[in-house]
Structure formats: C-alpha cells, structure tokens
C-alpha cells in the first residue's frame, strides 16, 4: 500500500505545484483568448488548450493525493529515517541530468548573479554595438576577469574570435550578423 511505513512517499515540491498551476492558467487563458477567432482558426487551439488544462488538473489532483499519502506516511513512521520521503530525482526521468541539477542547486547567489550578469552584458552589448565589437570585447573581459587568463592569452583569443567571425561568417558565408543599434 502507498503510504505504508515500509514504502516512503516523496514530498510534493512547491515548485512542481507552482509550474502546474502556471500551466493550467496558460491553457485557460489560451482557451479564453481563442474564443474571439472564427471557427476555422479556433478549432485546433481549443482542443489543445482543453487537453492541456485537463492534463494540468490531473497533475494537480495527483499532487493532492501524493500530499495526503506523504502526510499519512509521516504519521505512521515518525521515527524512521528523516531523509526518507524527501523527493529524489527519479532515475527513470527523461534527461534527468544530475550534474546540471547539482550545479544549479549548489551554486551560490553570488555565482548566479555573476553568470547572469555576464550573459546580460553579452546580449545587451550585442544589441547595442553588434557582434564585431561585442565578441572581442566580451571574450577579452570574460577571460581576464572570470577566467583569470593572462593579458596576452586573452587578447589573442579575442583577436582570433573576432577575425574568424568576420572572415567565416561575414566574408565567406555572407551570414547577416547583429549589427547593433548604434
């Protein structure tokens, strides 16, 4: 039986419930939004949003049942291993990438802020001044500051990256590049 002392029931994660609720809201809004269109246009979106909402409701009901079983298990086995019953990554999950989860889960706020800051700087610069200025500048700054590389190595990397990009994509392949707003 689920919820027996012998078989721990994992706790329901708040994040999972929140995502399911957001999904439900998205499907309901998609359905409501589709009502303004003619039959030919709303035909398929209606089916998809109803199906999505039904799956989300089922998932939420499942979380409710899981929560009850988890509480029942906690009452039956209060002195068992405290680690048991906590949610573990399911070994059968598709793409359960433990190293990604581990890195995301263990990175400090400072590390997150630094990484997101670098990403934001790269894409804002790409938008403002374009790829041919951003790439050498970013490569040099990132390698010097985050990678703690030497001046010469960082400068060489930046120069090669900029030159290869310009030669390969712009001159040979004629691939349009973000030019920047300035």
């Amino acid at each position: 039986m689920r919820g027996s002392a012998a078989e721990p029931v994992p706790a329901v994660r708040g994040g999972d419930v929140l995502i399911a609720l957001i999904m439900l809201a998205v499907f309901v809004l998609a359905y409501v939004y589709a009502q303004q269109w003619p039959f030919r246009a709303r035909f398929f979106p209606e089916y998809v949003s109803v199906a999505g909402a039904a799956f989300a409701v089922l998932k939420l009901v499942g979380y409710g049942v899981q929560l009850r079983w988890h509480r029942a298990w906690n009452r039956q086995a209060p002195e068992s291993d405290p680690a048991a019953g906590k949610t573990e990554p399911d070994p059968e999950d598709d793409q359960a990438d433990y190293s990604l989860e581990y890195v995301f889960g263990t990175a400090t706020r400072r590390e997150w802020a630094a990484a997101l800051g670098w990403i934001a700087a790269f894409f804002v610069s790409l938008w403002l001044v374009g790829v041919f200025i951003t790439v050498p500048l970013f490569a040099f700054a990132y390698l010097r500051i985050a990678g703690k590389a030497g001046w010469l190595a960082a400068a060489a990397y930046a120069a090669v990256a900029g030159a290869v990009l310009w030669l390969a994509f712009y001159q040979l392949l004629y691939v349009p590049m973000p030019a920047g707003v300035f």
Binding site: M23, R40, A41, F44, P45, V48, F55, D90, E92
Partner: peptide, 26 residues
C-alpha cells in the same frame, strides 16, 4: 519515465507555441 503527465502538459504547451502566428485557414 514516470513523468508521462508532465510530458503531455509540456507537449500541449509546445502545441500552443506552434500555433503562434497567422492562422493558415482563416
């Protein structure tokens, strides 16, 4: 795996994303 229901929800979300744009019928 055991996340089949999550898979169906994600698939439905993907379908909605696929519908963004000018509708080919109307």
């Amino acid at each position: 795996g055991r996340n089949v229901l999550k898979g169906f929800i994600m698939a439905a979300l993907g379908m909605l994303v696929a519908l963004v744009g000018i509708d080919p019928q109307a």
